[in-house]
């Protein structure tokens, strides 16, 4: 589990606003190992979106290296980048971004269609993924007939379609009520545990961030602080509250009976 999936070396990104250059990222370094679940937090204008775009091969850095599965994507042309996005990255968006004229299964099939997979293969994989996110039997529903939480589950299934190296989630809980927030965070955490999916999540939501493994604080284009999240405890199989040994499947500590996941009550205590 020590293999590096993502390695940013001295990445800088400067935007030009007229004649004035505005730095969004400055000499940023970040290493993410395979199977990690990390959250990037930071105030508005700290460079979160720019960082996500650079990792997601949507934007190119002005300077520095972006090694994705040991391939430097910083210098690649758009005609190459879309293939990297298709095969290495799975996007989860704040507003789900499902195509309204396609049903759940068809939405999940989209990245596979882009990759030229056969119809039968697409269909089978989409069904499997929708089952994995708990939407068995709802494959034929169009987005408007699904709840917000269900739509985000479809989007997560879509992000997993081509077995990407990294899932990039941009405020995945931003449009959800608290119940659905927890559901989605749990789903991501479980995928990380059971499938070993590497997840990088940008969020404003401190509660969601606390449930990841690594919390990275971004400020003025640099990572200024890193903390351990509750998910690390779960992986270590120690209760974050009492230090007792827990099972990887446990949602609550068998000793102190507290929820292992961060919740409002946990935060208020």
């Amino acid at each position: 589990m020590s293999e590096l999936v993502l390695n940013l070396e001295n990445v800088s990104k400067t935007y030009m606003l007229g004649k004035r250059s505005v730095p969004a990222l400055s000499n940023l370094n970040l290493k993410v190992k395979k199977g990690e679940f990390a959250a990037i937090m930071g105030p508005s204008g700290s460079g979160k979106t720019t960082l996500l775009n650079v990792i997601g091969c949507i934007d190119k850095p002005t300077k520095g290296k972006v090694l994705l599965d040991n391939v430097d994507v910083a210098g690649l042309h758009e005609s190459q980048l879309y293939k990297i996005r298709r095969n290495k990255i799975g996007f989860i968006f704040q507003s789900f971004n499902l195509l309204p004229y396609l049903n759940a299964r068809e939405n999940v099939e989209l990245p596979m269609a882009a990759a030229g997979k056969s119809k039968a293969e697409r269909s089978a994989r989409a069904k499997e993924l929708l089952g994995m996110v708990g939407l068995s039997g709802r494959e034929g529903h169009r987005p408007q007939r699904l709840s917000a939480g269900e739509q985000q589950r479809v989007a997560i299934a879509r992000a997993l379609a081509n077995n990407p190296a990294i899932i990039l989630a941009d405020e995945p809980t931003g449009n959800l009520d608290s119940e659905n927030k927890q559901g989605i965070i749990k789903l991501l955490a479980n995928l990380n545990l059971t499938q070993g999916t590497t997840i990088i999540m940008v969020t404003h939501d401190s509660q969601a961030a606390r449930n990841t493994e690594r919390m990275l604080l971004l400020k003025d284009g640099k990572i200024v602080k890193e903390m351990q999240g509750l998910h690390a405890n779960k992986k270590n199989q120690t209760c974050p509250h009492c230090g007792a040994s827990i099972q990887i499947n446990d949602d609550t500590c068998p000793v102190c009976k507290k929820s292992i996941y961060a919740s409002d009550e946990l935060f208020s205590s």
Partner: peptide, 16 residues
């Protein structure tokens, strides 16, 4: 625009 951006983000090329 957003839908097209999504298509491109999840791996569709310009030609498609």
């Amino acid at each position: 625009t957003k839908e097209i951006g999504t298509l491109k983000a999840i791996g569709f090329g310009n030609l498609n």
